[in-house]
Every structure is written in structure tokens, then in C-alpha cells.
Design a protein around this nucleic acid. Structure first.
Lengths: 109, 109
DNA sequence: TCAATATAATACCGATTGGTTTCAAATTAA
DNA sequence: TTAATTTGAAACCAATCGGTATTATATTGA
């Protein structure tokens, strides 16, 4: 297993909508570059660049098979994102609690 | 309440490490621009630009108070990110299940 | 073998980003 | 009132980004 890419590469990879769409497309089954590119309104070369950035972030794994490159989703690489998000869970809860209080106070009057 | 910014503005806002650090810094209590900028190795103007992008993504709320601008964390704006992440939960689970199976098989031999 | 296919690699382009500096405007405090 | 403070806004710069086109390389299939 290659080392987990730094958090920054994950956030950077997800910053582009085309790359997020690629990840969605890769759910379920692996694809060659040409298959991934199919349906996108850009050249294969452009899609390939996006795939490289996704690979840099560890979000996909690429495997050579003959002259093709098989791209496979690696959902485990989303962990840094989950971890970062969890830092804000308590504040999220605080906001919810405050809202609950406000609603209760409102219905009481 | 202003309309929720599109998902893309949230992902874009989080793509920069300085902006993520700003969000961490804003946990707990609100701050003026100068207070946010303090500790960062860049000009106040640069930090202000980051705050603008965070505001564009709805991740902070800005309120004028005299000549100061109070910046407050808005954790609710992270929802699009949570929602997007949840799309991959099932594949995450699949991977875990596969791992579990592999481990069981391994310990059995 | 040889042509077609799948990808890689590079150079190039315009737009955006992340930063700076400079100057103006609004607010506050002495 | 006047000077200091806080911010806003704009011009500018180098680097990165998202895309193109072109060329080269490796693999496959007839």
C-alpha cells in the first residue's frame, strides 16, 4: 500500500467539479481512461490530467493492463476529509442545540 | 438567511490550507479581520481575500460593527460536504466488509 | 508485419489564485 | 478637529489550473 497522500492533495483533488463527477462515475466498477472520458465534453488528455490529480490524492488507484490503464475508486482516501469534518462536529451540535432551545422557547409563548 | 451557496463554492473555499486554518481558528469565538490575520505569515489584505472566499462559500458570516468586521464560523455550511461524502459511504462499507472477510479467511487457515 | 488503438508527454494558452503594494474611506479616540 | 485605526478596493505579479493540440510510444489485432 502506498503512503497516504497529505490532506492537501485530497482537498485539491476534490476542488474541481469534473473530478468529483469522475469519482461518482467510478462508483461500482473500474474503467479505462477512455471509458472515464466518454461523456465528458473535453479531450481525453484533459480527463487524463484530472485522473492524475485524483491519483495524486490517492482517490483512485491506477493499474496497467496491456496498453490500457484501469482506474479504480479508492474510497478509503476520503478519510482525511472525514477526519477534518469531524473537528467541526461539536460546533455543529452546538448550533443544533441552540436552534432546539430557540424553537422550544418559541412554541412556549 | 442568505441562500445556501452552491456546493462548488464550498469545495473551492476548502481547497486552500490557509482557509482551512482560518476556519479552525474561528472555532469557539468570532474575530475581527485583524485578529484572524494575526499569526499568519501574510498581509491583512491577503487574509481578507481568503475571508471573502470563505464568505462566498457560506462558511463564515460577516457582520459590521463600527469600523470592524466580525467574522463568525458557520458550521452549517459544511452540510454540502457531508452530503457529498455520504454518497460514498456504501462503497466505504463494501471495502470494510471485504477486508473483514479477508481477515476472517486468513485467521481460519 | 503493419495499421489501428490507448496512453504518455510536452508545449502552449487564457483564466484564476494567492500574494503584494498602494491608496481611499470610514470610524474612533485623544 | 485631527490623528490613528480598521477596513475596502484596485492594480499588479508570478504560479497554478483547466483546457487544447501535437507528437511519441507501447500494445494489440488483422
Amino acid at each position: 500500500m502506498p503512503p497516504a497522500p497529505p490532506e492537501q492533495l485530497v482537498f485539491r483533488a476534490l476542488a474541481d467539479p469534473t473530478r468529483r463527477d469522475i469519482l461518482l462515475k467510478l462508483r461500482g466498477h473500474e474503467m479505462t481512461i477512455a471509458e472515464v472520458a466518454d461523456g465528458f465534453d473535453m479531450t481525453r488528455a484533459a480527463v487524463k490530467k484530472h485522473l492524475t490529480m485524483l491519483s495524486d490524492g490517492g482517490l483512485i488507484e491506477v493499474q496497467a493492463r496491456g496498453r490500457e490503464r484501469i482506474n479504480r475508486l479508492n474510497p478509503a482516501a476520503l478519510s482525511p476529509l472525514r477526519d477534518w469534518l469531524s473537528i467541526f462536529d461539536e460546533f455543529w451540535e452546538d448550533k443544533l442545540a441552540a436552534l432546539k432551545t430557540a424553537v422550544e422557547k418559541d412554541t412556549k409563548t
